[in-house]
Amino acid sequence: MKMRIAKILTLSPSIAKFTLQPVSGALPVAAPGAHVIVEIPGPTRIWKNAYSLVSSPEDRGQYEIIVRRVEHSRGGSAWLHGHASAGDVLEVSAPQNLFPINRLAKKHLLLSAGIGLTPFLAYLHTLNAPFELHHLCKPEDEAAFRSLLPNAANITLHTSRNALDLNALLAAQKLGTHLYLCGPDNFMRVALATAQTLGWPDAKIHQESFGGATGGEAFTVHLQRSGLTLEVAPEMSLLETLEAAGLAAPCLCRGGACGECELPVLSGLPDHRDHVLTPERRAANASILTCVSRALSPELVLDF
C-alpha cells in the first residue's frame, strides 16, 4: 500500500510519532497488536522495518506508528528521524498480527520496556478485561511516554527512581492472568525467565520483540538449491542479503518473533537470536531464522 506521511510529531529527541494516510482508498482493519512493514528508502538500499500500529483499530483513515531512533542505527530509523518529512510517500505492507489480545484472559498483565510500549497503546483502545500496565523506560524518555498514556491507577511508569519488583508482581497474579511482554532482548529474557521460574505456563505468556537485526561479524552463506554463494555484510541481515540477491525468501515479522523465515541449515553453526526456536531446536542447529540470526562459523550452508 502506498501511504503518505501526513504528520510527524516529535515526542522526544529520539522518539517520534508518524501519522500515515493511504494515497487512495481505505485501510484494512488491524486488530490491537498488529504491525506493518515500512519500506524506508536509504541512500544505498531499502530498509524494511516492522512497526506496531498504535492507532485505534477502528480507524481506517490512517495508521499511526511510533519510531525510536536506534543508537548505531543501521539506517531505517535514522532516515525516518532525519530525512522523512510530511508529504513523503512510503510503501507500507498490510497489517499482520502476531501479538493479539487473548480474549479468554480474566486479567491482562502488560509489561513493556522502551519502545516496546507501542503495541500496548493499541491494546488500550479495546481491552475487555481488567488490566495492569507496567512500562519501564529511561528517565529522559519518561515525559514522552507519559504523554502517550492515560493517567490511571493501573498504569505505572518505572524508571530508575521507581524500580519494578518483577518477581513480586508475577508471583502475585491469579490463575486467569495472561502476561504480555514487549521490549528489548535483555528485558524479555529477564521477564520470561522470572515468569517461568514462578511456574507460568507458556500458554499464558505472549511476547513480541522488534529489536530486529542488530548486525555482527560478516559471514558467507552458501545456498545449496539456488547454487549461490553470498557475503552477509556486518550491517546486513541474512534475510536482507537473500532479498538483495533477488531471492523470494520467506518472511513476515522481520524481528525473530514469528518463525516464518526459518530455513534448514545443512552445515555451519548458526548464531540464534530469535524468540521462536525451542532450546532443543537451537541446540540441534538444523535451522535458522534468517531475519535476525547470524553465524558463529565463517560459513553457513542452507537448503534454499
Binding site: 508471583a171 497474579q173 491469579k174
Partner: peptide, 10 residues
C-alpha cells in the same frame, strides 16, 4: 481455592 491461587499452580 482456585479463585485465590496464584499463577504457577498445577
Amino acid at each position: 481455592r482456585l479463585s485465590r491461587a496464584a499463577t504457577g499452580l498445577r
